[in-house]
Structure formats: C-alpha cells, structure tokens
C-alpha cells in the first residue's frame, strides 16, 4: 500500500487515476483549488472504497508557490511519508488571447510550468534522502514541438519536459523514479470546447490506466496512448524550414 499525493486532483485524468489507485488499496492526499469539487470527489472515493484507507484533501491555488511546502507537510501528516506524487493540474490557454497579452502568457507559463517546477523540486528533495519514491508529471505531446496554434502551452509543457529530464538524471543515484507522461488528445473539460472528437482522442479512463501502469513499471517517459510516440517522432523530424510554413 502506497501513500499517493495528487496535485490537481479534480482534473478528469487525475480523478480516473485516483479511482484506480483507490481500488488498488492505496492512501490518497488530494490537492485541488475548488473546495466544493474536492469534497464531492472525497465523498465519491469514500463511497467506492471497500477497505480501510485514508483519503484526505487540501485546497490550494497552486500558482501560489508559498503553499507548496506546507502541502507536503500536510500530506505527510495525513498519510505518513508519501511514496508517489502525481502532478496533474494544468490549463489550456487561449493562444490568441495570449498573443495579445504578455500578462496572460506569463500566467499560463506559471500554471503549466513554474508551479510544476516548484512542486517537483520539493518532491525530489523529500524523496532523495528516502532513496525511493516516484514523481509523475502530466506533460503533453504539445511540449515536443512549438506550433503556432498553441505554443504558449507547448512551451510550458516543453520546459517541464526538459526540467524533468535533468531531475531524472539527478535522481537516478537516489533510485527515485521521475516519470514524464505525454498524453495526446483527451476528451476532458479542458478540451470540451473542441468539436468532433475523432480516432486520435482518448478517454480520461484510458489515460488514467496508462498512468497507473507506467507508475507501476517505473517508466521514465510514456506517450499515451503509445501511438503518439510515432506521431511525435514524425512531427519532430520535419525540418524547421518546412515546419515554419505548416498550419499546425
């Protein structure tokens, strides 16, 4: 039985993970910014739980970095020392609006990159002396290459990607796992405004299962579903001279 801390717990993908982890008997510490949603989620998990498990919650806006250290302390108090940290919060910016507002761009970078860097730095420092633990972060295929249609989001996810490469490298000696999760298109509230979901789209449940498996197998980087690895390989291999003219 592991102690699992989830940031952005009320996200559709994290909710799917939480339900599967609950069924597997783990203890959960859920962090979200909306107290109502968090309480609804806690009750749901309590009802589904069939064994003695701890499910605790904390409300925080993760863009306020000053709360981060205390959140880990609260988690440790509620569950005992954490074994797994999942960072799942994020927002899909309105690219056009970002182009018109530096302030909004910075805000989105803060949500999707800086807050993640803060949370994972603290997790690493916690796990390093323990010489075990898993830090799992939901990045995105969008972080693999900048595209005109959403490069603010892509840049933030890309920053997280490179940051985690380094962190993974550093944590190898301490046998701490650092997992970068790169989902493709997922049908969640974040993408609810996008019509016609075709064959490239997955459900939060499918991605959740992929995350659980990747954590269990202590993987480094996973594309979910797997075929995105191939799609992104192709997209990354297009020469920049050609890429800059594409409407992607």
């Amino acid at each position: 039985m592991s102690n699992i801390v989830i940031f952005g717990a009320t996200s559709a993908i994290a909710t799917a993970c939480a339900r599967d982890w609950l069924a597997a008997g783990h203890n959960l510490f859920l962090v979200g910014r909306n107290a109502d949603k968090l309480e609804i989620m806690r009750t749901d998990l309590m009802v589904r739980s069939t064994q003695k498990q701890t499910i605790a919650t904390a409300t925080a806006d993760l863009n306020d970095f000053s709360t981060h250290e205390a959140l880990y302390a609260q988690a440790a108090q509620a569950l005992g020392a954490p074994d797994i940290v999942l960072v799942a919060h994020g927002s899909l910016p309105d690219q056009k609006a970002c182009e018109a507002s530096v302030e909004l761009t910075m805000q989105e970078i803060r949500t999707n990159a800086l807050s993640v860097i803060s949370l994972t730095t603290l997790a690493a420092n916690l796990f390093e002396p323990q010489r075990e633990g898993t830090i799992a972060v939901i990045g995105s295929v969008a972080g693999d290459r900048g595209r005109q249609s959403n490069y603010v989001y892509g840049a933030a996810k890309g920053m997280v990607d490179i940051f985690l490469q380094g962190l993974r490298n550093r944590m190898a000696k301490a046998s701490v796992t650092v997992l970068t999760i790169k989902p493709g298109f997922v049908d969640t509230p974040m993408t609810a405004h996008i019509p016609t979901k075709g064959v490239l789209w997955s459900t939060p449940g499918q991605i959740g299962q992929g995350i659980i498996q990747a954590v269990k197998r202590k993987r480094n980087v996973v594309y979910l579903p797997w075929f995105w690895r191939i799609i992104m390989l192709i997209i990354r291999s297009i020469p920049e001279a050609i890429f800059r003219k594409l409407a992607l």
Binding site: I40, A192, K197
Partner: peptide, 28 residues
C-alpha cells in the same frame, strides 16, 4: 455550430448552437 452531439442511432443528424457542460452538482 457543432455537429458532434449525436444520439445512439445518429438520427436525426443535427447541429447545436451551444454544447455546455455542468461543472459540478453544486455549480449553477
């Protein structure tokens, strides 16, 4: 306009002006 909301037999094929989501049972 969105044409991706369908019932099981996919008839009639219609378009919706708005596709809304209620966020939580306590939300408006």
């Amino acid at each position: 306009m969105r044409d991706d909301i369908k019932s099981w037999n996919r008839l009639p094929a219609v378009r919706h002006q708005h596709v809304l989501d209620i966020q939580a049972r306590t939300a408006c």
